[in-house]
Design a binder for these strands. Structure first.
Length: 434
RNA sequence: GGAGAGGUGGCAGAGUGGUCGAAUGCACUCGCUUGGAAAGCGAGCAGACCCUUUAAAGGUCUCGGGAGUUCGAAUCUCCCCCUCUCCGCCA
């Protein structure tokens, strides 16, 4: 949520950010107008209330309270009427402002490149060279199905489209990746958390997942609980409503979780394979920082995410998302994209965002610089470190060999317990089922 | 799911209609004291919003949430949420 004070203080900045995102900035004037009216109303009502409170106190101090109450009754009644009249409009006005403000995305960092689509994202770094294979690379779903480790057909029978079943080494590799990711995060001083995968509407709202633009969530209507679309939600909201002491910052959390997304707006996109499913698994990284440290934290977060990919020897690049592509909560986002040989291009695997005080304001996560200082909002950041399915995709595609087998990256072998999926037929030891 | 108890400031814990945003203790901040510390002493110490150049002063609201009774509600009434104990069920 935007700071209303910011809209008042620097409307131009808010307008500019909205139009860079390709949104109509008309809400700024509307909010300012409503706000002016609201404050005038409130001041008026509060003055009347102060008058009433003074009279009430006079009754309390009177030697004969009943008589005093009786004497002041007409005056009090008149005040009550004026208060009620003035107050009647307040909830609607406040609600309208709240709603408008709640639907406005975060103010972009001035450094975010201006653009109209993901085409305008700026590549800031490339690691490794795109894998070139001496044969025609197969897409990961073909590799996985041929190896018997991915089963889309049975998944569809169980749950419909956009699900998969992992089998054998596929399932084990998935489990290995989760442990690998968590261990690497822990080594970089993230505290591992095992959060709930279902959260309340308030929690979902507090991290900015429930705006009017979002219908991406699976939910249980009878209990009003939502399946998390990412562990960012419970991790960021972990300290909701708290006032932290400044010296505990930064707080760094990581969590494994399944993620559930309707992918309603993605019809026709990535309909095959693991890239876009209704359910996937991920290890998420979250920071709560001092405001002046969040920029630096974003760099570290990206580096933490990168380190895992590099250790897995997967060629990737880092892109600075342009104004049209930065999400609702974020002021600035860097995506990591891995090379997919079958598509001959880089595809998103991780998104690392600085949400500044946007989520913190919605969630009421504050801190004090000193024990007697005023509370301020923290800055929150989140990034994938990493998703299992897309990492598996990158491994299958980049490490595929001509015989259809797939090498396991060295770093993962201790976790997986095997070094290759689908041993070459020439090797008599390999029985393919491990 | 059933029965009972309870939700008050960072924590503990008073407060059952009036000058209570709330005693007291602990914690915390500042000062005094001390060679230094502890103890002791003094002062301060919830949040949001409004007003305000800053500060100060002031105003409104908040004692789980919402609605109500009353001139006046932490205190009374109703609804909801949550926690704890016992029973039932269960991985």
């Amino acid at each position: 949520m935007l700071d209303l004070a910011l809209v008042r203080r620097d409307p131009e900045r808010v307008r500019d950010s909205a139009s860079r995102r390709g949104l109509d900035a008309g809400f700024v004037d509307r909010v300012l107008e409503l706000d002016t009216r609201l404050r005038a109303l409130r001041t008026n009502v509060e003055t009347l209330k102060a008058e009433k409170n003074a009279l009430t106190e006079r009754i309390a101090r009177a030697p004969n309270r009943a008589a005093a109450a009786e004497a002041l009754r007409p005056e009090l009644k008149a005040l009550d009427e004026r208060i009620a009249a003035g107050a009647s409009e307040i909830p609607a006005l406040a609600g309208e402002i709240e709603q408008m403000l709640g639907d406005v995305p975060n103010v972009l960092d001035p450094r975010v490149p201006v653009g109209r689509s993901e085409e305008d994202n700026v590549v800031v770094k490339q690691w490794g060279t795109p894998t070139s294979l001496p044969f025609t690379p197969k897409p990961h779903w073909e590799i996985g199905e041929a190896l018997g480790i991915l089963d889309f057909e049975r998944a569809t029978a169980l749950s419909g489209s956009r699900f998969t079943v992992l089998r054998g080494e596929g399932a084990r590799l998935s489990r290995a990746l989760i442990n690998f990711f968590l261990d690497r995060a822990a080594a970089r001083s993230y505290l591992e958390v095992a959060p709930p995968f279902l959260v309340t509407r308030e929690t979902m709202w507090s991290t900015g997942q429930l705006s009017k633009f979002s219908d991406a969530m699976f939910a249980d209507a009878s209990s009003d609980l939502f399946l998390i679309p990412t562990a960012e939600v419970p991790l960021t909201a972990l300290h909701r409503g708290e006032i932290l002491s400044g010296e505990t910052l930064p707080l760094r959390y990581c969590a494994y979780s399944p993620c559930f997304r309707k992918e309603a707006g993605a019809a026709g996109k990535d309909t095959r394979g693991l890239m876009r499913l209704h359910q996937f698994e991920k290890v998420e990284l979250v920071w709560l920082t001092l405001p002046e440290r969040s920029d630096e934290a974003l760099q570290k977060l990206v580096a933490d995410s990168e380190a895992v990919l590099a250790e897995l020897e997967i060629p990737y690049r880092v892109v600075d998302l342009c104004s049209a592509d930065v999400g609702f909560n974020a002021a600035r986002t860097f995506d990591l994209e891995t090379w997919l040989p079958s598509q001959g291009r880089y595809r998103e695997i991780s998104s690392c965002s600085n949400c500044t005080d946007f989520q913190a304001r919605r969630s009421g996560i504050r801190f004090r610089r000193a024990p007697t200082a005023r509370p301020e909002f923290v800055h929150t950041l989140n990034g994938s470190g990493l998703p299992v399915g897309r990492t598996l995709t990158a491994i299958l595609e980049n490490f595929q060999e001509a015989d259809g087998s797939v090498r396991v990256p060295d770093a993962l072998i201790p976790y997986a317990g095997f070094s290759r999926i689908g041993a070459p037929p020439a090797s008599p030891q390999g029985n393919g089922t491990t």
